[in-house]
Each structure stands twice: as C-alpha cells, then as structure tokens.
Design a protein around this nucleic acid. Structure first.
Lengths: 149, 149
DNA sequence: ACAGGTAGTTTGGATTACCAACTACCTGAA
DNA sequence: TTCAGGTAGTTGGTAATCCAAACTACCTGT
C-alpha cells in the first residue's frame, strides 16, 4: 500500500502553490486594471470584452454567449445598451433570418482602440518590472499555458 | 526632430503586445475558472475573493473595501449575505466602537479550503502544460511582475 | 404542411455596484 | 467639558449584470 501511495503521489502532476498563487493574483491585478479602465469610459468589463471579440469579427449572439460563458438573454441587454450608445450594431443574416449578427461600429472601434492604448499604459508599471528578455520569456510561458492540448 | 523622435521612441519601455495579450488572456482564463467554481458553490467572485482575504486575517470593512477597490456600501450587502449563510462573522472592536471587523467562521474556512482544492484541480489542465522547471520560472516571473516598486 | 427544434428577446428576480444621506461614534480645540 | 467636524458603517435608491423560464419568429425534415 505504501508503495502504491508513493507511486500515486509522485505520479501526480504537482503544481506548486506559488504558480497558482501567481496566476490568480496576476489575474485579479489585470482585471482590476481593466475594470477601472472600462469604468472610466462607462463600460462594463463584459462590454469591453465583447468589443475585443468583435474587433475583427462579426459574430452571432449565440456564439458570443457561448464564447463568454453567458446566457443569450444576458447578451440581449448588453447589446441593447451598446447599440443605444452607438458602439455595436445588429445585422440580419439573409441565409437564416433568425440569426442576429453583432458587429462593431466605427465609434466602437475607435473607443476600443483608445482603451487598448490606455490599457498598455496602465499595465506598464507591472510589465516594466521585467527586462525585455524576461518579458519575452513570460510571454512565451503564458502562451504555453494558454494553448489547449 | 527626427533625432528627438527616435530618442523618445527608443527610450520608451516597449512592452511587447505578446506579453500584454498573454497577461490579459490568462487573466480571463483564470477568472473564468474561478467564476465557474464560485457559481458551483453559490458564491460570487467577489465573495470568493473576500474569503481569500479573510483566510488568515480579521479585517475592518473600510480596509476590505479599499483593498478590493469597492465602495463600503457594497461590502455591507455582501457581508450581510455571507453572514446569513454562516460564512463570515461581524465583530466589534472594543477600542473604537464604530469599527466592524469581519472574520471567517469555521464553515467559511471549510468552504474556502474546498474551493481552493477544486481550483487547483481546475487549473491543472493549464499548469500541467509546463514541466516543473517551467512552472517555477513562470511563478518567478509572475512574482516579479506583481511585486510593487 | 406541420411538428419539433433553434435563434433571440422579454420578463422577473437575485446580486453587485455606486452615490447620497443617515446613525453612531471618536477627536481635538475652545 | 463640550461640541464641531470627521470617520466607520449602514440604509435607500438606481442602474447594470446575470440567470432561468416563457415567448416569438423562423428553419428543417418527414
């Protein structure tokens, strides 16, 4: 039994607490920055995220909901408000008239690009603590962690 | 003018898009995991965060609000609900009777520890894509990025 | 042609968040 | 000692976010 226990123990992928802790803390840090940034422009974090997704795409509501892990009904209201502000537009799909395709307006694009630039500046104090080589290494490791499979 | 432009350009701390992108994407990834985890136990992300903060501390409402970047009134309701569920407790400070100190109950502690373990498992697919050496390196770089100054 | 399924919206309710106003309490200066 | 002004937290009002269930409009296969 002891042998089996040890086998299982050493066979387990032992992720260090430090890594989990770092990932969670950096997540909260980044979300804090993005939340403050969005709030400054009267956007919610989810709205910002939607803008980011629609940046170079035109997406149907169902796909947007699936991607964000939200209910379609949640998106309805969110899109309503963004449309009223002129940031997003609803479009019909001629092949299937049930489908609503959401896309960015020029105003939405402009706002998103401004937010993006401000985000870069806001994260600078953090990223600036690494030298270029470390930045590249961190980017590489995050890419690895994020890549499915 | 060209000279000045170039000077400014090269003097700027140029953070690569890849790093910003990685940080933001990993933040959303981690928040997604934590959100699903919290939801499974009928907690909000903020409640989970409060539990994490109170894990080994007893904190006054004002400090909690400042730390989370939220209004005190937001905390009032959140603490109400958590108290009603038996996860948190309000305590009086004898030195200053205006102060309310929030602390975790044993039930809150137990729930948080369960969440913590589940979080480790939920993040395993991501962290498991790195070998132990890479995990340590990523943890080190994140620590650097997160450390003020 | 129509039964059953899919895409979105609407409605209702809980939570989260803010601000402003309020209560209770503390502190320092007269 | 007193009391004016400040601080800690709560309450009430409003808006946004989110979900689930019910609904409308539309598509698809038999």
């Amino acid at each position: 039994m002891i042998g089996i226990t040890n086998y299982v123990k050493y066979d387990l992928p032992m992720t260090s607490d430090a890594l989990i802790d770092g990932l969670v803390r950096s997540a909260f840090e980044v979300m804090g920055v993005l939340t403050r940034l969005s709030a400054k422009h009267d956007l919610s974090l989810t709205q910002l995220r939607v803008l980011g997704i629609l940046r170079d795409r035109r997406v149907r509501v169902t796909d947007l909901a699936a991607y964000l892990g939200l209910d379609k009904s949640t998106l309805s209201g969110l899109i309503d408000r963004a449309e009223r502000r002129g940031l997003l537009a609803r479009g019909k799909n001629p092949d299937d008239r049930r489908v609503v395709e959401v896309s960015m307006t020029p105003a939405g694009m402009e706002l998103f690009e401004r937010l993006e630039a401000e985000g870069r500046v806001a994260l600078e104090p953090a990223t600036g603590r690494l030298d270029p080589k470390q930045q590249a290494e961190l980017a590489r490791l995050l890419e690895l962690v994020l890549t499915p499979q």
